[in-house]
Design a binder for these strands. Structure first.
Lengths: 342, 342
DNA sequence: TTGAAAGCGCTAACAA
DNA sequence: TTGTTAGCGCTTTCAA
């Protein structure tokens, strides 16, 4: 397994390395005679030539690698889809992605930036695994793209989910089914989720557009996990005038809401309609009945970020790009039960 | 933002680039006077020198990058932990990981291998997101490490979960609680999951060691998702002599088993004990009661693979390394209900 | 104790 | 139409 260099190809084809370089890279190829080109290609094939990207990078000052710094890739099921989106675009463009996981540690971020800078990556993407507002780490290149997070100070290309529109879509689905008493099972404020406020705003907007007076009793908060959703849903179901539908901050809370409904002898969706958020495969699709929910566009955001990073697409650095969150219609929504007195 | 080269540091310190190189890399540093070293360091600091890894790589023939080819990073919640493990070791060793996702497409694999080879990565890891036996792709370097898969022909360093031992641990937990009628909710054979056979073998071994005659009626198969688990569990609960415990192929099937139990008015774990497999955070920990399960050691396997790849650890290429699957004890196991006639 | 110089493998002016 | 040559920024032998 000896490494074969361009000089070996040149020698075999009886030309200079310059000619080999031009032929193989298709540069100035009109200026080189077809028979020479042919000869070069055959020689390259014969000796099994593979270009050395490191040498090329040193010469051209571009590496065809892009660095992707993520705050924590380990602990979320969404990371994969984001990476996949970024990766697909990179591959289409003949680029490779260098991944660094920093666990949100400032020192690790600094090191990662150094390393990527040293490796002369052509672009950098800074990704978060939960939508949030971040302080841009010092040393992050000016043209870095932020993925699933927005810079506290603005001024950077960034892409985040359009949570407010997602909230609207979710609640409209419920309104369209005929619901008027729609609860919002929100995350507690201490988690400082930017999605929480935005989804709530979407909820309020749709109530307003449907002429429904928001009832503060129907906006409850809990820990955004199944247990929290269960407790919140129970409180709601104990209300004198219980809601006929629940919009949950996420699918895990929705899972808890299912449990609460069963506990109260209620059937989903006949007695209670539920819409989640996130479209977590392992939860939403596996619930019984399958959960209608709003998907987070991680794959698309990953693609978008890579496209901007590689200059395939322009981004307005002043305002984060809002990626639509599509409704995934499954089986947890139906018209409200008919009430006496209606 | 002009790039500063080693020559700039040399000029400022009034030495040659050779000296700068030696000082900054700590090579032959005993041979260079302390005051010169000091001067070099100050100069480097003053001009903000950052070494160019590309140039260094060209010269030294090593890039401090390792390629990680994964079959599909997008669609599994486990990928992250594997990547995290590999990444942590890489970082500890001053290496970077270059990630390529091939979606299990042979052509994409070929391209990826080319690209990584061109970038002169120091090592490559070939990772699967589900434990399986694979045909090693042509062109995979001899010293590549296989992660969560074993080579069909053998002969490569590889690491996989110890599924059989995991099955044993799961069933022993049930036996220790006093169960004798223990069902195994297995995946259907058409999915060709190597884990299926191994976990079943573990199950049988423990029955044997406990002197329990395996009842074929208690080994049922279904699609390894919640719906499949629910159906399989219902069939089991309809048996004249129903099992008091179920070991499920995975957490999703266990989720279905919970549903079936509720449906039959049975309480977990009072009337029915359940153990899962995988420790999927979003499922196992969120179930009510939380599910006792066996964890897949993805983080550890990721670490192991990277350690071998970087030569920190020796591997026997003849037999895949078996990584233990720990029991995660939660609340879905208790002694069997007291029976009349006992 | 330090410096000169020769490349690593490739690209791209400039010459021929 | 093709070849010569000068680097890209760094490491490392050898000489001083």
């Amino acid at each position: 397994m000896v490494r074969v260099r361009m000089a070996d190809v040149a020698a075999r084809a009886g030309v200079s390395t310059a000619t080999v370089s031009m032929v193989l890279n298709g540069v100035n190829s009109t200026r080189i005679s077809p028979q020479t080109q042919q000869r070069v290609r055959e020689a390259a094939e014969a000796v099994g030539y593979k270009p050395n990207s490191v040498a090329r990078s040193l010469r051209t000052q571009q590496t065809r690698m892009v660095g992707l710094i993520s705050d924590t890739i380990a602990s979320t099921p969404f990371a994969g889809r984001m990476l996949a989106g970024a990766n697909d675009v990179a591959r289409e463009q003949g680029h490779l992605v260098v991944l660094v996981d920093t666990e949100r540690d400032a020192e690790a971020e600094r090191q990662a930036l150094h390393a990527l800078n040293g490796q002369q990556v052509d672009a950098v993407i800074y990704a978060c695994m939960w939508h949030r507002v971040v302080e841009v780490p010092p040393g992050l290149p000016e043209d870095a793209v932020l993925l699933d997070c927005a810079p506290a100070g603005g001024g950077r290309a960034a892409v985040v989910p359009d949570e407010r529109a997602g909230g609207r879509v979710a609640v409209r689905e419920l309104v369209a089914a005929g619901h008027r008493r729609i609860a919002f099972l929100d995350a507690e404020e201490r988690f400082e989720l930017v999605a929480s406020r935005l989804r709530y705003e979407g909820y309020l907007e749709v109530l307003a557009e449907a002429g429904i007076e928001p009832d503060p009793a129907l906006h409850v908060r809990a820990e955004p996990v199944a247990g929290g959703g269960r407790d919140a849903a129970r409180r709601l179901l104990d209300l004198p005038e219980r809601p006929t539908a629940m919009f949950c901050f996420n699918d895990r809370m929705a899972m808890g809401a299912y449990a609460a409904a069963h506990h109260c002898g209620l059937s989903v969706p006949r007695d209670l309609s539920i819409v989640g958020y996130d479209d977590q495969q392992l939860v939403a699709a596996e619930l019984d009945p399958p959960l209608t929910t709003i998907a987070l566009p991680h794959y698309e955001m990953g693609r978008w970020a890579m496209e901007v990073a590689l200059g395939l697409r322009q981004a307005d650095p002043e305002v984060p790009h809002l990626m639509p969150c599509p409704l995934i219609r499954r089986a947890s929504v139906s018209p409200p039960p008919t009430q006496f007195g209606d």
